[in-house]
């Protein structure tokens, strides 16, 4: 398999993970989405965890609303308090839009990318995944690695276990683990989201 087509595939994975992190909406969170999602989960050998998610979704009277409530609690405003804001700066600067967000934006710029006007903050998990997708699409694997090491992993390795531990819905546990899987080169920082 050529490097280019692998990059293309990886680019899709990043884009898909970005999709998984969007606020749940039946417009896109539909049968096709879940089919693709569970197909990926199965391929990675996490069939029983996938089954657990399916069970919870089918048992719920309104599965999308249940995901919306959990998304709000985890990532927007919740009670007790928002569990895991999906912004790098929150973990690196203890603030929204701190110096780390600016560094992230500078990296995008240096690679020739900008933020769209209606976008969220540059260090939002979704945009970082989109950026990774665009980088690998351009086959800039060195850039991908540099971004992952210097700007992504340092905060993501704090974010991921927080969600894994606190979430009340297995879908989000799976999503953060999938992101962890695709952004970790084995034996690089030796980090596993759920070491057990």
């Amino acid at each position: 398999m050529s490097e280019t087509s692998t990059s293309q595939d990886l680019s899709f994975f990043y884009r898909f993970l970005a999709r998984c992190m969007q606020y749940p909406d039946p417009q896109w969170m539909n049968e096709d989405f879940f089919q693709a999602f569970f197909n990926l989960v199965d391929t990675l050998g996490a069939t029983s965890e996938g089954q657990e998610i399916q069970n919870i979704l089918t048992q719920s009277p309104d599965p999308i609303e249940a995901l919306q409530i959990e998304y709000t609690r985890l990532f927007i405003n919740g009670a007790p308090h928002v569990v895991a804001p999906p912004y790098a700066s929150v973990y690196m600067d203890k603030s929204l839009q701190g110096a780390f967000a600016l560094k992230t934006l500078s990296f995008y710029r240096a690679k020739g990318f900008v933020m769209e006007k209606d976008a969220d903050l540059p260090d939002h998990l979704i945009h970082e995944l989109e950026f990774l997708s665009l980088l690998v699409q351009e086959n800039d694997l060195a850039g991908e690695e540099e971004f992952l090491t210097t700007l992504f992993r340092p905060w993501y390795k704090q974010f991921c276990p927080r969600v894994g531990k606190e979430t009340r819905h297995p879908y989000y546990r799976m999503v953060v683990n999938l992101i962890d899987f695709f952004t970790t080169e084995e034996k690089k920082d030796g980090f596993q989201c759920n070491e057990a």
Partner: peptide, 20 residues
């Protein structure tokens, strides 16, 4: 590709990060 292609069909068409 058997995994990635179905995914590519359900991703968001727009991205917040774009080429300058």
């Amino acid at each position: 590709a058997a995994v990635s292609i179905p995914l590519s069909k359900v991703v968001c068409a727009e991205t917040g990060v774009t080429k300058a």
